[in-house]
Design a protein around this nucleic acid. Structure first.
Lengths: 230, 230
DNA sequence: ACTTTTTGTTACCCATGGGTAATATACGTG
DNA sequence: CACGTATATTACCCATGGGTAACAAAAAGT
């Protein structure tokens, strides 16, 4: 997904250091998110980031207000990718479980990218109140989408009745964890993981005798939500 | 699980500050882990910890070498609880899926405790090389146990063939995530969560027509491991 | 009561690293 | 070429917070 490796810098040591501003901004973000993930946000210093780009720390301040803003924009990029994914799925339609599978697969792939992982590996408490709230709201919205697809699926019969809240937590947990263990170049590709998870995480939820195409119209049009305890 | 609230201190402002050394050590850990989780390890200062205990920072150094050691011991306590759980299950016996369910349930409950959560909420990179390795090894061992129960289950026919490695990741991810969202006093009790997860996370794995008691002795005594891709 | 040990306190050190000021160098433009 | 602007650099500031030294006050031993 990331076309360029995180190490290539537009600032060649002594060459044409003339490129569009936005490209440099992006290069800063790419390098920063990589370092933040590698060393942890607090251990990675702006000097480290600058050094990898063949510049010095104050030069970074031409593109960002400070360290916190860099962190925020990394997370934001990850969040935006997820939002795009959701918008696409919402536009497509399908049964609840079909949408859920699509979401799981796409979300899993995002989690294998640096920006995707940053969405959950970084602590929103390191952000300003304003930015922290933006991200927390975005995550809440993503969580709502998971739950929504699940309740949709229960309503249309493609998912067997269950506690949507906890099912969403279970699924999101598995997916978010990818951001912690996955690394490129391992023996598993991002696509393999995404494919496997979209199956594994839904096989327990799918209504039995699940005809791929036509979900059996359940006679009891129960109002969904939780089936058991609560 | 934690009998005492994290705020009660053996150092009453001006009272009998005479108690066993170990109790004080534990009180420091309880308060520290609580603060570390609440604010994040890097934002929580030793002054904060000391203040909550009605003492001053240097007093902490009577019980610990430094901040890092406190962090380490918190994680270690969580890890030990998991190890105890595993030892108990190993001693019990049963089919692969039965052991897996027990592990999931017990692990989930540990994750709802402060020490349990610290096991995954804290970054091992904040520890010394030595301590970091100890914890990473312990986690690897836990992961192996998950995989082992799964391959056991595949071998004894209680779990349908699947990629044990990824199944373990999926399950562990869900469980670890509990440490991020669960909080006491919410609308879900630790037991409810543990119970629900032990069912939800295994219903996709269980071999069909799973008689609770006697697992159908599979005629094909295949050598287990992965069934499909890899 | 006297020392000794344990457990605190106050006062300080100082490395770290985010952020800024002043300044230099290249770039595009009239 | 001169000028303004964008971009980098060097040199610095300083708040933070982990850790230590020197000292005080209980507890415990004798």
């Amino acid at each position: 997904m990331d076309a360029q490796s995180p190490d290539d810098s537009p600032w060649m040591p002594f060459e044409n250091r003339r490129r569009a501003r936005d490209e440099k901004r992006e290069a800063v973000l790419r390098t920063a998110v990589h370092l933040f993930l590698e060393q942890g946000y607090h251990r990675a210093t702006l000097n480290d980031v600058a050094e990898r780009l063949n510049i010095t720390k104050p030069a970074l301040y031409n593109y960002f207000r400070g360290k916190e803003e860099i962190l925020f924009e990394c997370c934001l990029l990850g969040q935006e990718r997820v939002d795009e994914v959701i918008a696409e799925i919402d536009a497509g339609g399908g049964t609840g479980i079909a949408k859920l599978r699509k979401l799981i697969q796409a979300y899993a792939e995002v989690m294998t990218t640096d920006y995707g992982a940053s969405l959950i590996r970084f602590d929103t408490r390191d952000l300003s109140d304003r930015n922290s709230k933006i991200l927390r709201d975005a995550k809440k919205s993503i969580d709502r989408t998971f739950r929504h697809y699940i309740t949709d699926g229960i309503a249309d019969g493609s998912i067997k009745p269950c506690d949507a809240k906890m099912a969403a937590f279970a699924i999101a947990g598995s997916l978010n964890w990818i951001g912690h263990w996955f690394q490129r170049g391992g023996d598993l590709s991002a696509e393999q993981v995404a494919e496997e998870f979209s199956v594994r995480l839904t096989e327990g939820l799918a209504a039995r005798a699940s005809r791929k195409t036509a979900p059996a119209p359940s006679k009891s049009k129960s109002k969904q939500t939780s089936g058991g305890k609560r």
